[in-house]
């Protein structure tokens, strides 16, 4: 009984301290980050390199909050089943055959520094923005799908069906016959800069797991850079030497 009260008190104290610390620190942090958001009329530059760190230790098996967040943000609906539906982000369960050790992680466009999709694209529709975000310019995508052949992460989807006017949202133009993939929620990044939170990360945090850290890999003071410096992280298929924007911990 006494012990329970003790834990409750401790929890309260911890939260209160956290909240006070947050109230004290947050305005400064936010101001600083808001100040860093790019004005709308300026082009993105390579001063930033956006990326995400995903802690698979916090990622729950069977949880797909990030996927739901993405689907909601980008208004991706199911049409003719999983074989042809677009999946910008998916949960992958991995299990070691020998030890039985298993983990779960979200898989999406890894925003490579040297993206094979952009290399093979005949028209230059697949490209890497100066700030590291890999995108498809659907205005010049001819739907050849060579990028999908080239992507080592199976991160891309082809739009196999008409997307009707009722399904279009202004911030994510999508249409039949072109290839698409995770944009790192570029509409949020362009608006909020270092303060942005991609929809997957937002949903994960809202679900209480907080496995994602979004930020500027070029800024040594950003949270993502500091966590990477402290704990390190793994790139999936690092053997390919693609220098990924998405890093994982705990795999």
């Amino acid at each position: 009984m006494e012990k329970e009260a003790d834990t409750a008190r401790r929890r309260f104290l911890a939260r209160a301290t956290g909240a006070i610390a947050g109230m004290v620190v947050a305005p400064g942090v936010i101001l600083q980050q808001v100040a860093r958001a790019k004005p709308a009329d300026e082009p993105v530059t390579s001063a930033q390199r956006w990326g995400m760190l995903i802690d698979t230790n916090k990622c729950q098996k069977g949880c797909d909050a990030c996927v739901q967040g993405c689907v909601k943000e980008n208004n991706i609906r199911s049409h003719y089943g999983p074989a042809t539906d677009s999946q910008w982000i998916r949960k992958v369960e991995v299990r070691d055959r020998n030890s039985g050790h298993s983990f779960s992680l979200p898989m999406m466009c890894q925003h490579c520094a040297h993206p094979p999709c952009a290399d093979v694209c005949p028209t230059g529709a697949s490209f890497r923005r100066a700030d590291g975000i890999v995108l498809v310019d659907r205005h010049i995508c001819i739907g050849c799908r060579y990028c999908m052949m080239a992507c080592p992460y199976k991160a891309r989807s082809f739009v196999h069906e008409d997307i009707g006017p009722e399904e279009h949202v202004p911030w994510v133009p999508r249409g039949k016959g072109t290839v698409e993939a995770c944009t790192l929620c570029v509409q949020r990044v362009d608006r909020d800069g270092a303060n942005a939170v991609p929809a997957c990360a937002e949903a994960c945090a809202a679900d209480g797991h907080d496995a994602f850290v979004f930020g500027d890999l070029n800024d040594p003071n950003s949270r993502i850079s500091q966590e990477l410096a402290k704990h390190g992280a793994t790139e999936i298929r690092a053997d390919l030497g693609l220098d990924l924007g998405i890093r994982y911990r705990g795999i």
Binding site: V169, P170, R191, N195
Partner: peptide, 19 residues
């Protein structure tokens, strides 16, 4: 244009509360 783009205004509600 409208094979991909929205034909009507849709308000974007998705921003993070902090932002």
């Amino acid at each position: 244009c409208f094979q991909c783009h929205s034909t009507r205004p849709v308000e974007y509600k998705g921003y993070h509360p902090l932002a």
